[in-house]
Design a protein around this nucleic acid. Structure first.
Length: 667
DNA sequence: TGTCGCGGCGTAGATTTACC
DNA sequence: GGTAAATCTACGCCGCGACA
């Protein structure tokens, strides 16, 4: 065992002390009843066994104490070992620390040397930097001084430039301002001009609007407020309205109510009251007998008129209507009715009357009755007394230029009756005239006939010389004679051929035929001169179309007639045998339509379609014509194909059908 | 102041409507 | 189908108002 060192010695001392304490403690423990087994009670006389038991228990307890002590001893030994190990460790550590201390001393010494070297270098660097700084500072100061000097100079220059800039700016600003002002002025002038123009336009518009408004207001007032009277007298329109309402079945006493009710519905005011029943009665009278008087007077004043008539049946009764178309004054206020240039064509209603039948004789009798009644009415009227003249019933016939009818069968017969009647009237008139003027009139007829030339006829757009020869010479000569007298005397203006659409002997233009009632009812009614029932546009177009078609047909017919007139009747058989189809047809047309050959007239064209047949018919007709001439011309054509003397029937695009009706020709 | 146009009234006759 | 009432028509007469 190694000799104990100081630390070990110390540790031993500690252990001894601890052991002493333990001993004392053990002594104390023994002394303490709790630590030591309890002292045995005073020995009593006990059994051995109990004594052994107590001893065993004491032994057990002691053994337990021994065990405990041993454990403590072991613990102390362990602690001692630990302490020993610690001591060894500390010694080792101390040795290590000493070595480290020495190393550190060495390092410190080296570090100090290095430190001093570094410090020297740094101090040199600092010195060098200080020197550089001093130099840079000097240079910087110099530069600053130079810059300050330059700054001072630049500031002065800048001040001067600023002054110049201010001056320039002021100048530029002034020019810009001027330019701006000029631009603004131009803009404002443009705006002003535009505004002025707009103002002028607006003023014009306002003026126009004012005028328009004024006109519209006036027109509105005119339309809104209807004055049925002028100067206290009911206007023709008012009277016509009353008559129409009466015809429509309105009682005279209810007409005022009806008119007012209509006006209220239409937004129209009627100035003052509408006419009373009594005045309505007067208006009806004016539309009846008074109208007849007026028509009679107009017929006497007019250069001529056209009569249109038609018939129809209603509930088994036959009715005949008649109206005339003639030049009549307008009767408008402030118009000179004596000036014929202001006259216009009017269609006047004559009558609608029941008839027993629709025969030609009945129609003719009706016309005679109308003429007689009209002459009587006018001659007995106060109007005739004031004008100090009367109307002769023959004047109606003298003034009648044309008749319009729609029935071929009875119409042609009626034309013949009318023509005969008029011829008689005109002959009587001419006779009276001849008696008045002796033989002057006769010579005048001849002179007038001789003075009519082809040029005159051509200028009038009428028949040429050849046409005159081709047509029925006798009829035309008679008409020319009548016309010549009429022209020379200017008294009889009605010496026209019946049914000539355009009178050939003076400048009086007669309008085309009026549409008849059972052909175009609406158009006919509206064409009848009624101022209130105006022709509707559709009917007008329809009527215009019909008239145009008829005019075209008439023109076509006239061309055919002219072609017919230009055809010379060929009597040479050699020439007839050389004729071609068209020439043969022309020859047949002359025989058929001019000479009224009774055989050819009844022969339809479809049965004369070949050259041979046509040539045969032409040769036969030639033989008959030569025979007729050799017989002195006494052989007249049969009545069936001959028109009444001085009657020319213009069918106006219509032709006679098999049933006697006139039907429109196809164009 | 005379003339003219209009409306109102009365009367007679014709026509339509309601009723038996 | 007849009859009475209602309605419509025609017309003369008279007064009123506008106008020259």
């Amino acid at each position: 065992m190694p000799p104990p060192n100081k630390r070990r010695i110390k540790a031993l001392r500690v252990n001894r002390a601890r052991n002493k304490n333990d001993d004392s403690d053990s002594a104390d423990d023994e002394a303490t009843p709790s630590a030591l087994p309890a002292p045995l009670p005073a020995a009593k006389p006990a059994s051995l066994r109990s004594e052994v038991a107590e001893k065993d228990a004491r032994i057990t307890e002691l053994e337990a104490v021994i065990i405990d002590l041993r454990c403590d001893l072991l613990a102390l030994q362990t602690a001692h070992e630990h302490l020993w190990l610690d001591t060894v460790s500390l010694l080792h550590s101390t040795r290590t620390v000493l070595l480290a201390h020495n190393a550190l001393k060495t390092l410190k010494r080296k570090a100090d040397i290095a430190h001093f070297d570094e410090l020297g270098r740094r101090q040199k660097h600092i010195h060098r930097l200080e020197v550089d700084h001093t130099r840079k500072e000097e240079r910087t100061n110099f530069s600053i001084l130079a810059l300050e000097s330059s700054l001072y100079d630049n500031s002065a220059c800048n001040t001067q430039l600023r002054l110049d800039l201010d001056t320039t700016s002021q100048l530029n600003s002034r020019d810009a301002t001027i330019n701006n002002l000029k631009a603004s002025l131009l803009t404002k002038q443009t705006t002003l001009t535009e505004t002025r123009n707009r103002l002028y336009a607006v003023l014009k518009q306002a003026n126009r609007a004012k005028l328009s408004l004024k006109e519209i207001k006036m027109a509105y007032n005119v339309l809104r407020i209807w004055n049925p009277t002028e100067g206290g007298e009911y206007t023709e329109a008012a009277c016509e309205l009353a008559r129409l309402l009466t015809r429509a079945g309105c009682a005279a006493s209810k007409i005022e109510f009806a008119v007012k009710a209509c006006a209220q519905a239409f937004g129209i005011q009627i100035r003052r009251c509408f006419m009373s029943a009594r005045t309505v009665g007067r208006a009806l009278e004016e539309g009846g007998k008074y109208a007849e008087m007026q028509v009679a007077r107009e017929i006497m004043e007019a250069p001529g008129f056209v009569e249109s008539s038609d018939g129809t049946s209603h509930h088994g009764l036959t009715y005949e209507s008649c109206h005339v178309t003639l030049l009549a004054p307008s009767y408008t206020p402030n118009t000179d009715d004596s000036d014929q240039s202001t006259w216009t064509y009017k269609t006047r209603f004559m009558e609608v009357t029941a008839a027993l039948d629709h025969t030609a004789q009945r129609q003719f009798d009706g016309t005679v009755e109308i003429a007689t009644r009209m002459a009587s009415t006018y001659s007995r009227s106060p109007l005739a007394a004031r004008e100090r003249r009367v109307m002769d019933k023959n004047e109606y016939w003298q003034k009648k230029l044309e008749e319009m009818k729609d029935h071929a069968a009875d119409g042609k017969k009626a034309f013949r009756l009318s023509t005969a009647h008029k011829t008689d009237i005109v002959t009587r008139y001419l006779g009276r005239l001849a008696m008045d003027e002796a033989d002057v009139a006769t010579s005048h007829i001849l002179l007038t006939m001789l003075s009519i030339t082809n040029e005159d006829l051509a200028d009038a757009g009428k028949l040429s010389d050849s046409e005159l020869q081709a047509l029925v010479t006798k009829q035309l000569i008679a008409s020319v004679a009548v016309a010549a007298i009429k022209i020379s005397t200017s008294l009889n203006t009605a010496t026209k051929l019946f049914n000539a659409p355009i009178p050939p002997f003076d400048n009086v233009h007669v309008p085309p035929p009026v549409l008849l009632a059972n052909k175009a009812n609406t158009a006919a009614i509206n064409n009848s001169g009624n101022d209130i029932l105006k022709l509707s546009l559709r009917n007008a177009e329809k009527a215009e179309k019909v008239l145009k078609r008829r005019e075209a047909a008439a023109s076509k017919k006239k061309t055919k007639a002219a072609q017919l007139a230009a055809t010379q009747l060929e009597l040479d058989t050699n020439k007839i045998n050389l004729m071609i189809l068209a020439l043969l047809k022309n020859q047949l047309a002359v025989y058929r339509n001019v000479l009224k050959n009774p055989i050819l007239t009844k022969k339809p064209w479809k049965d004369m379609s070949t050259v041979a047949i046509r040539r045969t018919f032409v040769l036969e007709a030639r033989d008959r014509e030569l025979a007729r001439k050799n017989a002195g011309g006494s052989e007249e054509p049969s009545e069936a194909g001959v028109e009444f003397a001085s009657t020319v029937i213009i069918e106006f695009g219509f032709s006679e059908a098999d049933d006697g009706e006139w039907v429109e020709e196809e164009i």
